[in-house]
Design a binder for these strands. Structure first.
Length: 943
RNA sequence: GCCCAUGUGGCGGAAUUGGUAGACGCAGCAGACUCAAAAUCUGCCGUUCGCAAGGGCGUGAAGGUUCGAUUCCUUUCGUGGGCACCA
């Protein structure tokens, strides 16, 4: 009987489905364990071999925990809102709901093929109204809450209103509050709500009439069409995540994430301590002389007579040689001198075309422009030129910095580039060639700070600044409030109606606010989303509906809770369910979500906790990062500005743009021209220059060997957009799910990134067939028997039990697969076909290769399912040895092995070692200096 | 530019606490079985010198600590990923 994996896997998958063996109950006497995968976006491309890496790991661990007696929740769902579906709708007119539904069906079929133990009755889809009803509901909780700075937690906004009514705040009395108009009051409240609206900048593309995502903008122009992109101010929704910065930092101490992951989150939050201080501004050109403080109220310097900067190094105050203000800073238009106006305007125009990413990432080119205005150093009265430069962003700190060229390399480069004289405040620590960012130098040229060590001077300087009333100590965060609206269709609509400029939330009973049908997915007027086009939807008796939708991370910020109670129509997740399942015990996913998704869901969890809706404020107890499976991409080369493509060998002769081409229409490196033309409409009329230089308008497939179009090859991230994906389903059909699962694990450590290579899968498949032959002979049929196992056989088994358990516990699945191979090799060598040994092995194997394990388990005439078998217990007594083959080194180099009794002590060992022929040969009659003996490890003779 | 990760045979990788480097698998080579092929089985398989016995070298590179280093430290180079030049 042969190993017919196709039949076996289909049978068991069918049976498991019928028997609902993966159904999980919220009530159980067993201890609970929650294993979660980062759920996928169901792209049209389907699953590729990179996705299941983490899913297989989590599946193995879930099944392992189940065998170990836990009630395991291991759900799966879909992050089904998103831009690609909408883009597809724009191109084809198909409703995103339709294509999404189709994609999910494909995904589920692909996932099921791999044999995962999901309880599909708990599936969630973020785009399902019954799901996003609760996303909207949580949004309303955020909208109706504020962060109480005393209690450091979210509280109902009604508490704040009561406080304003009875006590007022720093800026107004209760009487003033009550006298405010409704709009004024709402504006005040908006400044505290956890979900709030304000004006923010978006990437606006005039030509496309739409707002673009960051990755739709390339080099300042739109990816589609290459149109110019500018910043545009629009009303946007935000989440006040900055209020949670400290708690997000503190919470990291309580979770089991990798150090690098925690580091990334800390860097993103970017807490820094320093000082905010004000510099007086003068405009020398108008007055001819600098204005002293008595002139503060002169017309020249009113309103904006001060420039506020944030610095972490107030100790370097005497080294300030210039100021840099963000080009968007409100002061720029005020302080710019007449002389500099043209230059400044030109520079502003340039900056407007630059994306934030570009402004910050480009270190080579230094740009900036002098405003004509000066600031006064309050400590020495020096006049400091004020510049604007793109590397300072309006949103960070105060949008202005004091530049200290001798202590900051970027400031140094700027000063050099614009010939600004540099003041040295650290003496010999500054060599004039590059900045020195030390805190350990002694200050010079620094007035009252002279002679102080810089790190000590920081506190002294801040005290002085506070004393003079020109500034104060300040903690700053890099993190900004999270933009929460998108000018898109395929996302959760906001349950908000704008009435006379005030955002009025819908009542909970009105949820879900479903996405209305649209005829076109194109943008609305003035950069609004497609929803703005539906007048009858936007206009309500009480006002206008918000036309933005929520971003992708809205639904994914709380999905781990919905799995616990997926069908509840009364609440997002019953408290009983969230108390039972509690935190996610193991969360597996890629590092690409290190800061985005993980921080957002951590914040939402904290808010829900603060409001008493759940019982814990960190969602994920342990996080395991799976590595990326890289793909092997193929490229075609388009001659710039044409529709001509040139073969790889000829590409250097033209100015070309490399374009990804689907690996599935490339045979090795040779492009299938006809398939390429059909691939995308814009390539239908493509022309080709072949490897031999011949040219063709409408080529028939290469007749001669040289008439080939060769693609470029590169290893990079496997993703749909790079068209380098490999379909796991095909591998399951060819080799079986069990082989596929084990091969993915066998590739290397789960955390490591590695390129996909299908070659090698044969080895794992051969292993499973060899396992099969321990039970069945192709010709003779059944070969397993009921004989009693020998000590040698039990030794093999128990060594395997120990190793598999250890490896599974520490997520070292690749070495576990090796261990299975070694075990099967050894059992085959000693011709062990005994049920007593084999059935234990099958239980160990179940998490890794459930189908073959279940099949063989039932062939052994076992009752019940192997999925719920009892995990074998390792018996150390069986592995006890009395002797060991010790490696013997001379001066650290291995020379021989000696078998010694394990209970021997150093003196006896030394004696035996010195009698050894080979040791004597190396000693050449001399006495050894020392003999190192580590029991059960090794012996080293030092000569 | 900064941050993180990583570097071991032809390839994927193993070595869990500083203690036998290269487990396991792929590819390759030789052989058995077969009319033949597939499947399976056996052996070899870092490199170099040597008929052999046995040596030399070897975990990106160079130093260091140690009886002993893939593992720890310093310097340096390469690769991959991320980024927000955050003041």
């Amino acid at each position: 009987m042969e190993y017919d994996f196709r039949k076996i896997e289909a049978n068991w998958q069918q049976k498991w489905k019928e028997d609902k063996v993966y159904a999980v109950s919220n009530e159980s006497a067993k201890p609970k364990y929650y294993v979660l995968d980062m759920f996928p976006y169901p792209s049209g491309a389907g699953l590729h071999v990179g996705h299941p890496l983490g899913y297989i790991a989590s599946d193995i661990y879930s099944r392992y925990k189940r065998l170990k007696g836990f009630n395991v929740l291991h759900p799966m769902g879909f992050d089904s809102f998103g831009l690609p579906a909408e883009q597809y709708a724009l191109e084809t007119g198909q409703h995103p709901a339709t294509t999404t539904e189709k994609n999910i069906t494909t995904f589920k079929a692909q996932l099921d093929k791999i044999g995962f133990c999901y309880d599909w009755d708990r599936e969630v889809r973020t785009s399902d109204p019954q799901y996003y009803k609760w996303t909207q509901w949580i949004f309303l909780q955020l909208f109706n809450s504020y962060f109480c700075n005393t209690q450091k937690k979210a509280r109902p906004i009604t508490d704040l209103i009561k406080k304003y009514e009875s006590k007022g705040n720093k800026h107004f009395t209760p009487e003033q509050w009550n006298a405010f108009t409704k709009n004024e009051q709402e504006d005040m409240l908006m400044k505290r709500r956890l979900a709030f609206s304000k004006y923010g900048e978006v990437n606006w593309c005039e030509a496309l009439g739409t707002v673009l995502a960051n990755d739709e903008v390339v080099n300042g122009v739109s990816e589609r069409g290459g149109h110019p992109v500018e910043k545009k101010k629009m009303r946007q929704w935000y989440l006040r995540i900055t209020d949670y910065a400290d708690r997000l930092l503190d919470g990291l101490e309580t979770v089991d994430f990798s150090d690098s992951m925690k580091e990334m989150q800390r860097n993103w939050i970017g807490k820094s301590e320093g000082a905010e201080m004000e510099f007086e501004i003068v405009n020398r050109e108008s007055s001819g002389v600098s204005v002293d403080s008595a002139d503060r109220n002169s017309p020249l310097t009113t309103h904006h007579s001060h420039l506020r900067v944030y610095t972490t190094r107030p100790d370097t105050i005497f080294g300030v040689d210039f100021m840099v203000v963000a080009p968007e800073h409100e002061l720029v238009s005020v302080i710019t001198s007449a002389e500099q106006k043209t230059a400044i305007d030109e520079y502003l125009h340039y900056v407007k075309s630059r994306s934030e990413r570009e402004r910050l990432a480009e270190a080579k080119t230094i740009t900036g422009c002098f405003t004509g205005a000066y600031a006064i150093n309050p400590f020495d009265g020096r006049e400091i030129p004020i510049w604007i430069a793109e590397y300072v962003l309006a949103g960070y700190g105060t949008g202005a910095i004091m530049a200290v060229p001798c202590g900051d390399q970027r400031d140094f480069a700027f000063a050099k580039h614009f010939n600004i004289p540099i003041t040295n405040i650290v003496g010999s620590h500054f060599n004039g060639e590059e900045a020195n960012a030390t805190k350990d130098a002694t200050l010079e040229n620094s007035g009252f700070l002279n002679g102080l060590l810089m790190k000590d001077a920081i506190g002294v300087a801040v005290n002085k600044i506070e004393e003079l009333g020109i500034g104060k100590r300040k903690v700053n965060y890099r993190m900004r409030d999270a933009g929460f609206s998108r000018q898109r269709y395929w996302g959760e609509p906001f349950p908000i109606i704008w009435t006379d400029g005030v955002a009025i939330p819908l009542d909970a009973e009105e949820l879900p606010l479903e996405l209305p049908h649209v005829d076109t997915y194109g943008p609305g007027p003035e950069g609004e989303g497609p929803l703005a086009n539906i007048k009858e939807w936007v206009n309500t008796p009480t006002g206008l509906r918000e036309t933005s939708t929520m971003p992708g991370y809205a639904g994914s910020s709380w999905y781990f809770l919905r799995y616990m109670d997926p069908n509840n129509s009364e609440t997002f997740c019953d408290r009983k369910a969230s108390d039972y399942w509690n935190q996610v015990d193991l969360y597996i996913g890629g590092t690409e979500h290190a800061v985005g998704h993980l921080l957002y869901s951590r914040m939402w969890t904290k808010v829900l906790f603060d409001l008493g809706l759940i019982g814990y404020d960190e969602p994920f107890k342990k996080l395991l990062n799976q590595g990326m499976i890289q793909g092997s991409s193929r490229f075609v080369y388009r001659i710039a500005g044409t529709n001509q493509f040139v073969s790889h060998g000829k590409k250097t002769e033209y100015e070309v743009q490399p374009l990804h081409v689907d690996v599935n229409i490339v045979n090795g490196v040779e492009l299938d021209i006809e398939a390429f033309k059909k691939w995308k409409p814009e390539f239908a009329d493509a022309e080709f220059i072949f490897e031999d230089g011949t040219f063709s308008l409408s080529c028939s497939i290469g007749t001669s060997n040289e008439m080939k179009f060769i693609c470029g090859v590169e290893t990079e991230k496997m993703s749909k957009s790079k068209y380098n994906t490999v379909d796991p389903t095909e591998l399951c059909v060819q080799y079986g799910a069990d082989t596929f699962r084990m091969y993915e694990m066998f590739l290397g450590p789960v955390e490591a990134s590695k390129p996909w290579d299908t070659k090698g899968i044969e080895g794992v498949h051969r292993f499973l067939r060899k396992l099969w032959r321990l039970f069945n002979d192709d010709l003779k049929g059944k070969v397993w028997n009921d004989e009693k196992a020998t000590d040698a056989e039990l030794k093999v088994l128990h060594r395997t039990i120990k190793k598999i358990e250890e490896d599974t516990e520490r997520f070292s699945f690749n070495t576990a697969v090796s261990t299975f191979m070694i075990c099967v090799n050894e059992l085959a060598d000693i011709k062990c076909h005994k049920k007593e040994v084999l059935e234990k092995l099958l239980i160990l194997l179940t998490p890794y290769a459930p189908h073959i394990a279940a099949e063989l388990w039932s062939q052994l005439d076992n009752e019940g399912s192997v999925l719920d078998a009892t995990y074998p217990k390792f018996n150390p007594a069986l592995l006890v040895e009395s002797t060991k083959e010790y490696p013997v080194s001379i001066n650290g180099k291995l020379r021989t092995n000696i078998e010694l009794a394990l209970d021997l002590e150093q003196p006896a060992v030394e004696q035996l070692v010195l009698q050894n022929e080979i040791v004597q040969k190396w000693l050449e009659g001399k006495a050894p200096k020392k003999i190192i003996f580590v029991k059960n490890k090794m012996i080293n003779v030092v000569i």
